[in-house]
Design a protein around this nucleic acid. Structure first.
Length: 277
DNA sequence: ACAGGCTCCTGCAGGC
DNA sequence: TGCCTGCAGGAGCCTG
């Protein structure tokens, strides 16, 4: 489901609702997935900790946690949430109906609950204790802050299609299928162009288009294509601003040409053959 | 090292 | 109504 703007929206919403709260109980489901850390270790590690902040790195939500014994001090552990394609992180009241495919419920001192729901179980939950491991560092560069030189460097010499490169999280973190298609349209570039054949001017255009489209989407609360919702259950509105994504056969908003659908890197890819070269 | 394909899982829409 | 197929916003693993 979620890409950078959706994850950013969720992280901000969760942060606003649970920052400073304390985890007093933790329940985890029994499926093998989506647990990167065994559920018993997660619940044991999470209880009694205070939530210091919640933020986004790439497509990961990072919950910064204080120590279990001490009310003072900085971050000593983290809870890392990756939503996969269908994951949701929700802040609810304890009596709210428990959705099907709920895999984690954290009871908070305030009376709220933080819940993780994920039907397809492509998401991942990980607990990191700084006594045993280091702070989480996601793969890839942040598309909102990367500079032109670093951006161009990512694609140099690579044979794969630019669309596939944009989706590769070890290069850029946070870009998924929607924003890859939308940024390529806005930059006027065909998705199948070989990365290494893009000029510096084209790459600069792409970097700016990507940054603009991501920032615009964050302002609108992300794209609610099927069931995406923020931490409070509210939908985003960026889907109304899509130029190509899931608009196969519809007229291009720029030139009127029918939007085409092809498959690149195994993913549905949408573009305008007149506006993108 | 790199690039492409397969696979994990559930739910939904569309066709018959 | 029910069954089948295809498709879905992600990413790890295998292969060549």
């Amino acid at each position: 489901m979620p890409e950078l703007p959706e994850v950013e929206t969720i992280a901000r919403g969760v942060d606003a609702r649970v920052r400073g709260d304390r985890i007093i109980d933790a329940w985890f489901g029994s499926h093998r997935e989506p647990f990167k850390t065994p559920p018993s270790r997660q619940s044991k590690g999470l209880v009694e900790r205070r939530i210091l902040s919640v933020h986004r790195t790439g497509k990961h939500i990072v919950v910064e946690l204080g120590s279990q014994s001490d009310h003072q001090g900085g971050v000593t552990a983290q809870w890392i949430v990756h939503l996969g394609m269908t994951g949701r992180l929700l802040v609810t009241t304890p009596d709210a109906p428990v959705a099907k495919h709920t895999h984690a419920r954290l009871s908070l001192e305030s009376g709220r609950e933080l819940r993780f729901v994920d039907p397809r179980r492509f998401g991942r939950l990980e607990f990191r204790d700084f006594a045993k491991t280091d702070s989480f560092r996601g793969p890839g560069a942040e598309p909102l802050t990367i500079n032109g030189k670093e951006f161009a460097e990512l694609f140099r010499g690579r044979k794969l299609a630019i669309k596939a490169a944009l989706l590769n999280q070890t290069l850029l973190a946070g870009v998924g299928n929607i924003y890859a298609d939308e940024s390529l349209f806005r930059a006027g570039l065909r998705p199948r162009r070989q990365s290494r054949k893009l000029t510096r001017v084209e790459l600069d255009r792409l970097r700016k288009a990507l940054k603009e489209v991501l920032e615009h989407a964050i302002r609108l609360g992300g794209s609610s294509v099927s069931d995406y919702v923020g931490a409070d259950g509210a939908k985003g509105f960026f889907q109304l601003e899509h130029y190509v994504y899931q608009r196969t056969g519809e007229p291009c908003r720029n030139c009127g040409n029918a939007i085409k659908r092809i498959v690149v890197a195994g993913r549905s890819t949408h573009y305008c053959s007149r506006c993108q070269s």
